[in-house]
């Protein structure tokens, strides 16, 4: 459909708005986390706490970008993203499950363990991939109806 390999002005405007949402979500999450930590509630290991604080706004931002049709520019890029994300996330989830079966729990003492944090990270990427696949199918159905 688009052969200029660039986002047009409306898409750039939408992306700007979405990135602003992500920034607001990031600030809100940092504040909530600071409040929780200040009150002695540690919900994850340090590394995964910071990683998830970064990934959650990226997750929100990605879903909004996907469903507002401004995530990637070309069909090829979309397929590459789906391929890399699905392989990576499924492999990661399987690895976490294997570790779980070896005795590494996901949550201990009301806190996400390293394995639990990794699982959450891979689930985020897996959900983004699923949403991207759903949107691709939806677009195909819409274009075949036209």
């Amino acid at each position: 459909m688009m052969n200029n390999h660039k986002f047009d002005e409306r898409q750039l405007w939408i992306r700007g708005n979405i990135f602003m949402h992500a920034f607001i979500a990031q600030v809100a999450l940092l504040l909530v986390n600071a409040f929780l930590v200040d009150n002695g509630f540690i919900w994850a290991e340090r590394f995964h706490e910071n990683l998830l604080l970064l990934l959650i706004p990226i997750f929100i931002c990605s879903l909004e970008l996907i469903f507002r049709d401004v995530y990637v520019q070309t069909k090829a890029q979309r397929l590459i993203t789906i391929g890399i994300f699905s392989i990576g996330s499924i492999f990661g989830i399987i690895t976490c499950m294997v570790d779980y079966r070896k005795g590494e729990a996901f949550i201990t003492n009301d806190m996400l363990t390293s394995n639990g944090g990794s699982l959450a990270t891979f689930l985020i990427f897996f959900t983004i991939t699923v949403c991207l696949i759903i949107k691709t199918i939806k677009d195909r159905i819409a274009s075949s109806d036209e």
């Binding site: 459909m1 688009m2 052969n3 200029n4 047009d8 002005e9 409306r10 898409q11 049709d69 036209e146």
Partner: peptide, 29 residues
């Protein structure tokens, strides 16, 4: 819409949004 979008160099959704009055294009577009 898709053909016009391709000729102009924007996405079909942008032409659709202009026709629906949902987007106010720049003078360049």
């Amino acid at each position: 819409q898709a053909e016009l979008a391709e000729r102009v160099g924007v996405s079909r959704q942008t032409i659709n949004a202009i026709e629906k009055g949902e987007y106010n294009p720049t003078i360049k577009l």
